[in-house]
Amino acid sequence: MSIFVAFRKEWLELVRSRRLLIVAVVLIFFGLTSPLAAKYIPEIITLTLGADLSKLIPTPTVLDAISQYVKNMGQFGIILALLLTMGVIAQEKDKGTAAMMLVKPLPRGAFLGAKFLGLAVMFAISLAIAGIGCYYYTLLLFEAMDIVHWLVLNLLLFVYVLVPVAITLLCSTITKSLAASGGIALGVIAIGGLLGTITKLGKYLPGELITWGTRLMKGDTSTSWIAFGVSLVLIVVPLVAAWLIFNRQEL
């Protein structure tokens, strides 16, 4: 299968270029420091500003660690997705490696699919390690969390990160320059974020996945399947669009 041949190359590239290491280190760092920050920042503030103020700061709980984790993973997930995806197709077209390989019996769909698969596996591994690290530190500093709910929260975070990956991949396919690809993707993601904030559409958009996961950790089992469905559509549609456009493109 051509996609596995292309995926093998993508994976090697992610390892050799240290992109995998960078993503893993960043996400694991914030995974580990989230419970630490939740636990010790109030203590640091108390030590710095005096005991009187400590009465104003509520005692940190496991939920503080979770909200810190979710916030960090969401923000850095989007930033890393954007930075690491914006050049994947645009640069190969610009440098000429895409032309060099695609005159061979390597379907463009496999070329594109392998890029997405490589990035998805990279984020999955990094999020998994970050999640395990965060769970362990939270257990040490606070208490044990519901493992199934924790797993679901991380799966929702994973889907949430794949949305900017797919959108940026489409932008990288449309353009031939890194800057243009990154700029357009950033614009689209920012507009999506704004829509969720200033309109009532927020509960149907990918950002709701994070809220859903956080709710779940609080013991609230209400679901947001529409937001989940919209997120899947926002992953699949850009990928299909990228494939259709890439198939027609001259290299």
Partner: peptide, 10 residues
């Protein structure tokens, strides 16, 4: 091609 391109890391 006229200007062959490769993956520099390979």
């Amino acid at each position: 091609p006229e200007e062959p391109a490769f993956y520099a890391w390979m």
